[in-house]
Design a protein around this nucleic acid. Structure first.
Length: 492
DNA sequence: TTTTGAGTTGTTCGA
DNA sequence: GTCGAACAACTCAAA
């Protein structure tokens, strides 16, 4: 290679392929590429590659906002985000040829369909002598790096997380690139043409009211959490009537903030906090939530079809019921159990549900209604702004009992007790189930137990203004225990 | 190899 | 009202 050719090569553009890492800070692929020469930042809407799970409606809404935010951030550096649609294995190599790019860089992803696409892209680039550079940006510990003493995959969270922590502190978070030089005039789709946002009925108003997709929104949310949520997090995170969860899940899913940033930010905040101090238990608990995300990806790596197949095969024989009316009532928040209904309505209105309530609502579908966990998983996938290919199925399987390190079969949440314990004044229920707002506290989680006078005073006729319970808790509990007992292996 | 202790998030019942 | 045991037995991870 002559000196001239080498110089050309050094000046050739590098493509940075953004995926679930829609940020500028702590973005290893971008940092490396921007330090080497001019870049083209591209996002590919891939609705063509086989097996890629189509985004849910709430995720599409979020993606639109996040891409718009990323584009604005790049404008501050003098560039734009290039939007392209099509099968990535065609689109990325074609772009590389058009731009005579020398390299394409991206942060690795970990779902099977995504990995297959990335492998195909890498192969086609190699055929054109374009270098693919991949980086670790989205997980603290990549799948298959954490193994048991015997070298096998770990299937229980606690030893998994203990082992992870013996590997040392996650690397420090890095900043944004100091500067980015852009290759000019790269053609791009218009975001509006992708129709990611609702066009008919505008169901996204609740989402807009609750969320600010994008890196700035993520950091604002993080700052608020560190100031007001982290202190007491270990216990108050369970309270849906309080604002003590981080609400960072969608930002983390879309990579607007990295787990490395969160890990260190929580520690830093606990050390330097001015007012209410976060305890080490608070920080550990928050870190463990990041750990559960890591664990879910670790499981997804072992079982790529985690959203379809029971992790424990014996659940393949589980006697799930089929009951479209019950499923519909659950989705609409009309089960007659206020905490469940509040959660399902919060989900519909905001694209998000408090973690404690997710457990109760999911347990209700699986154990009270005996409906297949996959039915719930699909609904959450469509409606959650934080819908995640690892967390969503892993959590559903955990609650169903079919997962790794699963909830024991006898753990059947009582929606009334859970409500009284975690929403003691009924504030959460009143917010999302306003027709019950005038019920006194001692009946807010069990309206059917109120006397006719109390119901009348609250302006409620059960069955008209609010449903009678879809199933009786005691009856449903016994039915679930019997169904789970049928899974027991016959004696050898 | 065998053994041992442990395993996110709960509820109910009876003393 | 409080408290401990039962709810199955199993699988996993490490010693």
């Amino acid at each position: 290679m002559t000196d001239v050719a080498a110089t050309d090569r050094a000046r050739a553009a590098r493509i940075v392929w953004f995926r679930d890492d829609l940020r500028l800070a702590d973005h290893p692929a971008l940092l490396e590429a921007a330090s080497a020469g001019p870049v083209v930042c591209v996002y590919v809407l891939d609705e063509e590659s086989e097996r890629l799970r189509p985004l849910g409606a709430a995720s599409r809404w979020w993606l639109a906002g996040s891409l718009r935010a990323l584009d604005r951030s790049l404008m501050e550096f003098g560039g734009r985000l290039t939007l392209l649609r099509g099968a990535a294995a065609s689109v990325i190599p074609r772009l590389a040829r058009q731009l005579r790019a020398s390299e394409v860089s991206w942060n690795r992803r970990y779902d099977r369909a995504g990995r297959r696409v990335d492998d195909a892209v890498e192969q086609r680039l190699a055929a054109d002598a374009v270098i693919a550079r991949t980086f670790q940006g989205s997980l603290l510990y990549e799948p298959a790096t954490i193994r048991s003493g015997a070298g096998s995959s770990i299937k229980v969270f606690t030893p998994f997380w203990r082992k992870a922590k013996t590997l040392g502190e996650p690397r420090a978070a890095r900043g944004k690139p100091a500067w980015i030089a852009f290759l000019p005039d790269v053609p791009s789709d218009r975001l509006d043409d992708w129709r990611l946002e609702p066009s008919g009925p505008d169901w996204a108003s609740g989402l807009r009211a609750h969320w600010v997709p994008g890196e700035s929104g993520a950091h604002e949310r993080l700052a608020t959490f560190l100031e007001t949520g982290l202190a007491g997090y270990a216990t108050l995170r369970d309270r849906p009537d309080r604002l003590h969860t981080s609400r960072l899940s969608p930002h983390l899913h879309f990579g607007e903030v990295s787990p490395f940033q969160l890990w260190h930010a929580a520690r830093m905040a606990a050390e330097t906090s001015g007012g209410k101090a976060a305890s080490s238990a608070d920080v550990e608990k928050f870190s463990a939530e990041l750990g559960w995300r890591e664990f879910s990806y670790h499981l997804l790596h072992d079982v790529p079809d985690l959203a379809q197949r029971n992790f424990q095969p014996r659940f393949d024989n589980f006697p799930w019921r089929s009951d479209q009316a019950a499923a519909m009532a659950w989705r609409k928040g009309l089960t007659g159990y206020p905490l469940v209904d509040a959660g399902m309505r919060e989900l519909w209105a905001t694209g998000w549900m408090h973690n404690r309530v997710r457990m109760v609502a999911a347990s209700f579908l699986v154990k009270h209604l005996l409906l297949d966990w996959r039915e719930g998983e699909v609904w959450f996938w469509d409606t959650l702004v934080d819908a995640d290919p690892a967390n969503n199925p892993a959590s559903w399987q955990w609650i169903a009992g079919s997962g790794a390190d699963a909830a024991p079969y006898f753990r059947i949440f009582n929606p009334v007790l859970q409500g009284e314990r975690f929403d003691p004044a009924g504030d959460y229920v009143r917010r999302w189930v306003p027709e019950l707002a005038r019920l006194p506290n001692d009946h807010i989680h069990c309206p059917w137990s109120a006397s006719p006078q109390v119901l009348a005073q609250a302006g409620i006729t059960l069955g008209r203004d609010y449903p009678t319970p879809l199933v009786d808790h005691g009856v449903a509990r016994q039915r679930a225990l019997a169904a789970f007992a049928s899974l027991k292996l016959p004696p050898a």
